[in-house]
Design a protein around this nucleic acid. Structure first.
Lengths: 332, 332
DNA sequence: CTGTTAGCGCGTTCAT
DNA sequence: ATGAACGCGCTAACAG
C-alpha cells in the first residue's frame, strides 16, 4: 500500500489540497509549509499516483507505439527515435509488438486506446486493413509510419521505395551490370509492388529490355530464404550480375551465397541493399546501399504527435516524405 | 469525449452497474440485457477506460521495462522476449530507454513507478548505483537482467561472461592460435572485469604464459573504434593470431580490419565473437561465437514477474544463470 | 438478476 | 494562503 497525499495530510494536520499544491510547486503556498510537505513526503516515501492524475486530467502522458517486430533492428531504431523526442516532453512509450499478425495488431491497438494513450504511432503490417475502422473513429492524434494501407487521410511519414528501387537499378545499370536480379519478399505488399514498379521504370529510362531484370520472390523474410534463393538462382556466365536486395540484412545472406560461389565482388557480381544498417560499412566489402532515415522517421512522427497534442488550432494533415540516399561503397 | 458506461446507462435506463457487469461478461446477468448492452456499446463506440479501472483495482496490467538503448539489437531481442510472454497474460510494456545515462535511468524508473506499473524488468547500465535506494524500497516485483550492480538481493537473470571468456580463449588456444588479443570496452564494468578474469583463468589452465594475451581496451562501444583498434594493433608475424571480441557486432569491425590487412581467416587470424546475432552465420566466413540466450532471457524475466504477480505465497529469491554455448563456425 | 452506496487518489472550482 | 465539496470512470460489497 503506497502512501497517498491523504496520509501526508493526516500526519501534518493539513488538507489534501495543501499537500497536492505543495508537491506540484504551486505558487500560492507558504514556502515553509511547502518545505515541510516535501520533507515529509520524502520521509514517508511518497510517490504520486499518476493513474489517479490521469483519470482527472484525461491525459496519460503516454504514447502508444505499435510495431510488427521490435527485434528487427529496423523497428528498434524507429522506436529509439520516437523515444528520444518523447523524453523531452515527458511522455512515455506504451509498446505493442504485433508479431506481424493482423489480429494481434488489432487487439493491441484496442488495448492501447483503452489504456487511454494520448497519441499513437503506428507501423502497420500490410496484411491487415480492418484496423482502419478503428483509426477512422479515433479521437487522438496518430501518425502512420511507412505504410498507409488504404489511403487513410491522416498524418504519415514514409519514403518512396519505388524511387529507391529505380535509383538502385539505374546505378547498377550505369555501373555496367548486364543481368539484374531483384530479391524481395512481402513484408509490405504495397511497398513491394511499388518497388517492383520502380525497377521497371529504371529499365525503361535506361532503354534496357525487360528481360534484363529477373524478380526473385522470397517466400519468407529470413536470411536463410534469401541465402538459398541466391544459391539457387545466381549463375555467372560472362555477364556481370547486379543484385538489388530488399534490405541490408537480407543482402548479407545473398552476399554470403555469392562468396560461396567464388564470384568476385564487384567485378562479377554487384550488390545493393536497402536501409544502411550500422554494420553495412564494415562488411569485408562495404555494402552499397540506400540510406533509410529510420531514426529521423521515429523522431519526426513523435514530433508530429506532440505538435497535435499541444497546438490549439486544428492542424492540417501532413504527409511527410523523407529522402532516400544511395550510398555507393564497395559492392558495386 | 469518449462515451462512458454512464452514457450507456442513461440511454438504456439501466444502472451503471448493470452496464459494467454486462460488459465484463459477469455471470449474474440476464442474457437479453447483456446482448442489448453489448450492442448499444458497440453502436455508441464505447471503449472501457482502463485508467479508471486501474485506479480501482490497483493494477495497471503494465510492466515497466528499462533498457540502455533499444536500438541495440541485443536489447531489442530481450524486449521481444519479454513482450512475447507478457502478451499471453494481457500485460503491456511501458518502455523506458535510459540512453545509457544513469540520471535518465533514475528518472525513468521513478516515472514508471509513478505510473504504477505492476512489475519491472530492468537492464541496468553499470554506471549507476543510486537507483539502488529506489529498488530497495520498491513494493512491486522486479527482475534485474544481466547486471546486479551491488549485489542487490532480488530476482535476476544473467550469464557468466567470465566463463564465456574462458571457454573462448581455451578454444582459441586449443585451435593452435599462438598470440591472443581480447577486444573489450566498458559497456558493463563488472562484466568486463569478470571477462578479463576469465581470460586469465584460461591461460592458467592451458599453462600458457600471461604475455600470450594482450588486452585491447576500446574507449567507446562503437564499430569504428574496434575497427581502428584492430587496424592499429594486429600485426601478423608468423604466429597465428586469435582474436576474442566483446560482441558479434564489434567483431564485424575487427573482421573487416583483418580482411583489409589481407590476412587469411582462420589460417592466420581467428576470431570469436559474443552474442550470436542473426547475421553472424551469414558472414563470408561464418563467425565463431558464443551464443547468448537473449530472447530466453527476456522470456524468463517476464515469466518470473508474472509468477510473483500471481502467486499467493511469497516466493524465494531466484537468481537464474543461463548457459552460454560456444558455436564453432568458420573463423576459428 | 439489478440497483445503491461508497471510494480508488488526485485535481478543479469556489469559498474563506 | 488554505480548505471543502465534488467529480474523473469505474468496480466492490452489499442490498433487495
Amino acid at each position: 500500500m503506497p502512501v497517498t497525499q491523504k496520509d501526508i495530510a493526516r500526519k501534518l494536520n493539513l488538507s489534501i489540497m495543501t499537500i497536492s499544491r505543495a508537491l506540484k510547486g504551486h505558487p500560492d503556498i507558504n514556502i515553509e509549509t511547502r518545505k515541510l510537505v516535501e520533507k515529509t513526503a520524502r520521509e514517508m516515501n511518497y510517490s504520486v499516483n499518476l493513474v489517479a492524475r490521469s483519470l482527472v486530467q484525461k491525459r496519460t502522458n503516454t504514447i502508444g507505439v505499435v510495431v510488427p517486430d521490435i527485434s528487427e533492428p529496423f523497428y528498434a531504431e524507429i522506436v529509439r527515435g520516437v523515444e528520444s523526442v518523447l523524453r523531452r516532453y515527458h511522455y512515455n512509450i506504451l509498446l505493442a509488438d504485433s508479431d506481424n499478425d493482423d489480429n494481434l495488431e488489432l487487439e493491441a491497438l484496442r488495448t492501447l486506446l483503452e489504456k487511454r494513450v494520448d497519441g499513437l504511432i503506428f507501423c502497420a503490417t500490410e496484411k491487415s486493413s480492418e484496423y482502419i475502422h478503428i483509426l477512422e473513429n479515433i479521437s487522438i492524434p496518430y501518425v502512420l509510419i511507412n505504410n498507409n494501407p488504404v489511403g487513410l487521410e491522416c498524418d504519415s511519414i514514409y519514403i518512396d521505395r519505388g524511387l529507391g528501387a529505380r535509383n538502385a537499378l539505374l546505378h547498377l545499370i550505369s555501373s555496367g551490370f548486364e543481368k539484374l536480379f531483384y530479391f524481395y519478399s512481402f513484408q509490405h505488399m504495397e511497398q513491394s509492388r511499388k518497388s517492383i514498379q520502380g525497377c521497371f521504370e529504371a529499365l525503361k529510362e535506361a532503354n534496357a529490355p525487360r528481360e534484363m531484370l529477373q524478380l526473385l520472390f522470397c517466400e519468407t523474410h529470413e536470411l536463410e530464404t534469401y541465402y538459398k534463393m541466391a544459391l539457387d538462382n545466381i549463375h555467372y556466365q560472362n555477364q556481370r550480375i547486379g543484385l538489388f536486395v530488399w534490405d541490408d540484412e537480407m543482402a548479407i545472406g545473398v552476399y554470403r551465397a555469392v562468396v560461396e560461389k567464388g564470384l568476385a565482388i564487384p567485378d562479377q557480381v554487384g550488390i545493393i541493399g536497402f536501409d544502411d544498417i550500422k554494420i553495412s560499412s564494415y562488411l569485408p566489402k562495404a555494402l552499397t546501399t540506400i540510406h533509410y532515415p529510420k531514426t529521423e522517421m521515429g523522431q519526426k512522427s513523435a514530433e508530429r504527435v506532440i505538435q497535435r497534442l499541444t497546438s490549439e488550432e486544428p492542424l492540417a494533415i501532413k504527409n511527410i516524405m523523407l529522402d532516400l540516399q544511395l550510398i555507393k561503397r564497395e559492392t558495386t
